[in-house]
Each structure stands twice: as structure tokens, then as C-alpha cells.
Amino acid sequence: MAGALLLVLAGCGVDSGQATETDGELGGTLTVLAAASLTDVFTDLGDQLESDHPGLDVQFTFAGSSALATQVAQGAPADVLASADEELLAAVADLGAGDPAVFAENTLVIAVPAGNPADVTGLADLADPGRTIALCATEVPCGAAAARVFDAAGLTPAPDTLEQDVRAALTKVQLGEVDAALVYATDVAAAGSTVEGIDVAEAADVVNRYPLMVLEAAPNPQAAEAFVDLVRSDAGRRALADAGFRLP
């Protein structure tokens, strides 16, 4: 029943046209379900694939990993699933055409407003009640990850707010309303010059892995394979690295 509820929340269905193949050339519609943090990278890669194959139309649905897993479990007609959560993807792994493979990793860093007005240098500063700190709530993935980082460091954080998602935490840094937040490296990269990232040594072991798989029921399996190949190509890896991902 939890799944049903989430489906209602996720809302959208995915419409996929049938693949039309002419002389091995890719065509039709390719439908990719991807974690929200992949929005920028995947949109660029999709554009690239479309320009390489003029007959191909690439459609993305970007959403939270749990919502995506629910959609796949409910039989959404999609070709590729790229998740930000290994566990959630494992739950639907039997719907994949092959084994899921990790193509990117994300780690937590400290985000501070441009210029770092509160002189934050490391994780210990996030345990200082005198500073205004935003963390993700432990109920959401970035908060769970943050909790593991603080555990590993033996620190008790002193947050002023527990955000509902990583974007909300980052927004407060961008506005300068908090001194620091613990967010993903990719979020700092996407935020541009308004935010500075500070690497956290203690976060090295708390890694978010991004698995990717072609779905068994994919309406357009050739195009799906082509997209997965593009993600794993040098160009794809460069794009991921530019967006702040670590590569396995």
C-alpha cells in the first residue's frame, strides 16, 4: 500500500511510442527514468543522442529515486532506469534486462555561501551551535547519509533546520540564510558561483552509488542500449565529472 500511495504522489504516467527501426538506424521514442540529480547531465546526453540519430525522440522523467522505483514496479512503459539509490533499484532489479551497473558516485560536501562568511573549515564547524546550519532530515536520503558521516566522524551536529530535500538545504545556503549545509558534490557544482564546496574527508566512505539498467520490458531496447553506452562513453564520463560526480 505504501507503493500505491507513492504512485499517487508521483502522479505522472510515462507515454512511450513504439520503436520503429529502419536499417538498424535508431528511431521512435526512448523513455528514460532518472534521478532528479541527473537532470542536467542526462538532458545534455539526450540532446546529443537525438542529434546523432535524427529519427529518435528522447523523453526523460526526472523524479526522486523512490518514486521512479514505484513507477517501474507499477509497469510504467520505460526503457532505462537510472537511480540514485542502490537499494531502491535492487527492489526492482528483476525487471531489468541485465544486471544494474553503477555508473557514477556522489559524495557529501559542505556547501557555504560564496565567500564563506562564517569561516567554515570542516565538519566540526557543523557541530557548533553558534553557527546556523542546515542538514537534510534523516527521513530523506541525503539526511541519512549525513547522519552516517557524522557518526563516522564521532561528531554530534547542531543543525537549525532539517530540510525536506537537498535542494531546500542548498537554497538556504544560496540565500545566505545558513552558514553551511551538508549537500551532494553535484549540487554544489550545479549551484555555480553562489555556493562554495568544502570537501569532507570523513565523507569519503559514505558514497551514493548511481546504478543504471535497461528494463526488460523496454519498448525500444536498441535505443536504450545506445543511451547506456553513451553514458558510459568517455564523453558521458566527462559530462558526469563536470557535474560533480565521482566515477567508479
Partner: peptide, 18 residues
């Protein structure tokens, strides 16, 4: 207001995170 139990976490926020 953010979300922190006791100072700013109202029921709708608690519901959403739960």
C-alpha cells in the same frame, strides 16, 4: 522557518517527512 522539532516542526512538516 525550516524544520526543527520543538521550534519549527509543525504537523504538516512532520507528516511530510514521515
Amino acid at each position: 522557518a525550516g524544520n526543527f522539532p520543538g521550534t519549527t516542526q509543525t504537523m504538516p512538516l512532520a507528516v511530510y517527512l514521515t
